[in-house]
Design a protein around this nucleic acid. Structure first.
Lengths: 232, 232
DNA sequence: GCAAAAGTGTTTGGATTACACCCATGC
DNA sequence: GCATGGGTGTAATCCAAACACTTTTGC
């Protein structure tokens, strides 16, 4: 019935959020990292994360932390897993929850701020060793991302506003780590509401591909009336 | 760069886990609740949950909390979402993470212990108002459960050791809230490794159905050699 | 025999796969 | 013209839905 420690001793933990920001560039999924300008792990690369203030709600805190450290604003953050090994933080018991976002690298202007000394977009499969247990957090969250790519139209958050169908296919080939048939891929995505733009690729030394953009408005309507579920 | 509060003030939160235990009985998915014998929310029904000790890892803490309050032992707990509204706990900032399990109600002997005054299995769609934000936690975790039923063979954790195919079908009909065709259901589950027992239902006033059990060993092998993925 | 549920087979249409082919552009 | 990728069509196959039918038990 009684706790093995005083009740007040339970109120000695801290809680942080880690924002795993994914982007897509040069045919690779990349993650945004910061170089730490403070102890612990000074000079080490880490996921964007910090402690939550006492009066902050989690989704707001995630946005605030991301903006504080990188000036990135206005992205949708999805909750991931929670990590709480007793010794994961050298300065005390800090439990952390991952939040992740999918962004267009070229439209985002990530700048190091506060105790972030530098930012960098690192290909997700090249990341080696990070501060704290951030490598575990990254791996777990990358799995969450891949699942989301399958069941929600979030690939369009990674792709440029106007993209070619081959770019879209290459993104899925990278995420699934598998080759896909071009004709079959196009048949599969036919039901996805996309706008066939009257524009073409430029600066390619072969036949230029058509450009498309995601029709999020029509997508919302279709979901509303239950007549479509995204599935890849 | 500097925090708006002293660094030490961040170490004043607490962290809890809530164990959402699901079972299946009388054609309904039920959740195990406890009646609180302590403040706050004294006398209210709640999800099984408590504070994590300073030196505990999360998965261990979840098992320990579940055992402390209900004597339930030896179940697999899956992590769910994390909840952290600043005012969700009247005694301070307490962030909580949901863990959930699927159990066989008849094989589990849940007894109220510690500050749990009573336990009860409540049909999941009959649950109204619970202590704290536990209703939100339950709703979110029930969605996690339904997703898991689709993509992992966890229905066999809910069903009795020996079950009929119709019982299995009824579980999915309840979870999906949809009627399924008997013949098509059987065709769909054919690839699932199950043992066709040489036993039949008893005490029914119609043709007795055959009993089956899940072949977890064969399942593990199939998954290992990548020749099967569960999907409903 | 009848009620009630167990259990199976057949047809159909739509999706998935594999693969072949034509098209537009730069050089 | 030819290399390079863009873009499409077809046939074979698999899968899911709809539905009808037979079987076995208790009473």
């Amino acid at each position: 019935m009684a706790y093995k420690i005083e009740f007040g001793k339970f109120f000695s933990y801290s809680f942080s959020l880690d924002c795993v920001i994914f982007g897509y560039e040069e045919g690779q999924i990349k993650v945004l990292l910061i170089k730490r300008a403070i102890e612990p792990y000074l000079g080490k690369w880490a996921i964007i994360g910090d402690l939550v203030y006492p009066d902050e709600d989690l989704p707001n805190a995630a946005s605030r932390i991301l903006a504080d450290l990188t000036t990135i604003d206005n992205v949708i953050l999805h909750q991931g897993s929670t990590f709480g090994k007793p010794d994961r933080h050298p300065q005390g018991r800090v439990i952390t929850t991952a939040y992740f976002a999918l962004v267009r690298i070229d439209e985002i202007n990530a700048q190091a701020e506060s105790w972030a000394e530098e930012v960098c977009w690192m290909p997700v499969n090249k990341v080696k060793d990070l501060a704290f247990d951030h490598k575990d957090i990254l791996d777990s969250t990358y799995e969450d991302l891949k699942r989301k790519l399958r069941y929600e139209p979030v690939c369009f958050d990674l792709l440029p506003e106007k993209f070619t169908l081959n770019e879209m296919q290459q993104l899925y080939e990278y995420a699934y780590n598998a080759e896909l048939d071009k004709a079959n891929f196009r048949k599969k995505i036919r039901p996805i509401p996309m706008i066939h733009l009257k524009e073409k690729q430029t600066n390619v030394k072969h036949r230029p591909a058509n450009l498309y953009s995601f029709d999020s408005e029509r997508y919302e309507n279709l979901v509303e009336e239950d007549s479509y579920t995204f599935k890849m």
